[in-house]
Nucleic acid binder design. Sequence first.
DNA 1: GAAATCATACTTTTT
DNA 2: GTATGATTTC
Length: 680
Amino acid sequence: MFDPGDDARLPDLTDEQRLAATHDAGSLLIVAGAGTGKTTTLSARLAHLVAHGVPPERIMLLTFSRRAATELLSRAEQWAGHDRLRGAWGGTFHAVSNRLLRRYGRSVGIDPDFTLLDAGDQADLLALVRDELSCDSTPQRRRARKELLAGALSRVVNTRQPLDVVLRQHYPWCADQADELRATYGAYIARKRERHLLDYDDLLSLWRALVQDPEAGPLVAGRFDHVLVDEYQDTNALQADVLAAMSDAGATITAVGDDAQAIYGFRGGTVRNILDFPARFDAEVVALTRSHRSTPEIVTVANRIWAAAAERHDKDLVAVRAAGARPHLVTAGDEHLEARGVCERLLESVERGIPLRRQAVLFRTGHHADLLEVELTVRRIPFVKFGGLKFLEAAHVKDLLALCRVAVNPRDDLAWFRVLQRIDGVGPGIARRVVSALDAADGSLARVVGSGVVPPRSADEVAGLATAVATAADADLATGERIDACRAWLDPHLDRFGDGAARRADLARLAELASGTPDLETFLTELTLDPPASTGDLAGPPHLDDDVLTLSTIHSAKGGEWDIVHLIHAADGNLPSDLSTGDPEQLEEERRLLYVAVTRARDELHVHVPLRFHHHRNRLDDAHSTGQRSRFLTPDVVDAMDEVVSVRPDGSLDDGTDLRPGGRSAAATADAELVALLGR
DNA sequence: GAAATCATACTTTTT
DNA sequence: GTATGATTTC
């Protein structure tokens, strides 16, 4: 147990960490470089606070993912004592806002029974209201796609920049459509309010409205003595405003971040927040610069990558560990050879006694790992993949969720609109009319069937839908039974695009997830706020003794660390992504991505560069093109690494050391092609 | 008004 | 390599 006043028992803290953990004089900014013990310090601070009498329910911990919040709180409990953190508010900005708005939303005009829209729903609703607006005027010109509508609006909300500026900077090809966009956004906003729908951005802007409200604000914000924010460099203008309002109401703010690791600019995140924090919150600054994670050799590579940044406010990382191996820069002929090279090195490390779970392969985008996944499967190397998941975007998954939403909230016309179109003979036109008839019929589909809106040949199926929805709407049934009613109705529609078996398996897994939740309403909200982050989340209960490799996008690897890290596809065009090379600010973010990737490694770092890789940009290009290593791997960075040319572009071996004899590779490639054909 | 066909703008990272 | 929307056909 942790005695009040006995901070000496905070274990293993360095002086600088202890200073940050025990700071008691107002708001605090902890500038924590990669591997400097940020998690340790933050959880020690949590333990320190409760040990000094702050009631846990008056502490709010804001992190970037649910995983991070859970880990921080459980580590704090190890020191503070079992259950001493129970009652603390922990989670993402969005999840915490959801909780606050369900409780206090009425005071800012929000019905607490709102339905959450995910990114796909938001785009669908925007497309829907745009169609309604322009149904008489025939647009000759091609209009912006719906994801673009959503992206631009989201950027406006999160960065507080005017639409014209956002369009000019990020979507120049549709700057001339600004007026149409504005009209669409107006209708979208009105529709959201009318139907009690909230999107991700609403969670932030309504939280801000709530705490800035002269009456409700002090009451809500006054519930908290301490707000601790992790990954502050990735917060946006709106989130900083929320914290400022919380601070005005008397909360002490502790922010932790590192401007070298800001990688969420695409979501409106801005390093201005961390730079402005000391002045805005009248805060002291403690810097953690001693890297306890990585060997000096890895720290040197990281420092040299960061040294070339256009804007840098950090001191270099100082390595405190003993010397280790120099990082490797592995050049492979092409993607196949890169994948093989990674596998060979993984297995070789396992033979040296480093289990797979202490190794990771990182990449810029999800599909960069496609080939490697095939190669790993062929070689029976188990892995989980984080990030880049499209599970919730698959049509059949969205259909099932829409069906659930209709059951939960019969006034969710967006979901109705989607579900109805699964029915043979029902397209956008009929669906729209049924939806408006539903409005008049108080949400009862059964009554609409008899009203003549539904064409005769579809009447039976619509009636079946009405029955299924009625069953799923029965709150007395278990969540599993309710979702099964939806699944049963959807089942005949799963073969329309082939591969029905895989789709059924997906839906079964979803039902399994749902049955662990007390009610369907909660399940839908949780799924939106905390979507499955890894293939492991979808694979059923994990086997604890399994030794499994981690594959991850760099974004999802934030906060993680492994003994051995392989970074693949470190070629120009992949990292930096050639979608980001046009704008200097985006390019700088790509540099920070590389920095984040290399600083995940404790002992060994292998950076892989395929010289030839697929270009997905246009089909006139040769299917492959010859690439170059990432422009961020400048000569001084490479000087700090050992260059290994494992295979020449023509596939011949450079020497005998990197590929073992045995001739497995050609067979593996053939197998891999077959596996790809079969589908995983 | 729904299904089928065609053309072309866009392709990432996540709550 | 794809998916959306515009266009044509039924």
